[in-house]
Amino acid sequence: MANEDLKYTESHEWARQEGDVVTVGLSDYAVEQLGDIVFLELPSVGDQVTKGAPFGAIESVKAAADIYAPVSGEVAEVNEALPDEPELFKTDCFGQAWLIKIKPSDPAQWDSLMDTAAYAEHVRGQ
């Protein structure tokens, strides 16, 4: 998979560093576990998020989960179209189904996230 530049959390969010923002999404494993997604709640631009704390929620028919911030910072952009097109999670969870972009307040937090190999190991252990 061509996601070598991504980092991951234990709660199955991915993060991608592009310039001074970190884009956040849900891993394919998380999407598969949830099943058909029916609802998504995201923060607003300008909201503060904290590493390890929930910033949104996602629902499928039979499950619900909080979405956790991989790094702390301010929400710079929100994927406003996504809640109306939940199929995107299935077709392109690492691309078009991104959730938010964060302007990190502590760049050092990036290094605490798992790389692709570590995350693959983490998923195997689930």
Partner: peptide, 11 residues
């Protein structure tokens, strides 16, 4: 149903 206690428990 994802709002309800049998799925979301304490949340």
């Amino acid at each position: 149903q994802a709002r309800e206690q049998h799925i979301r428990r304490e949340k």
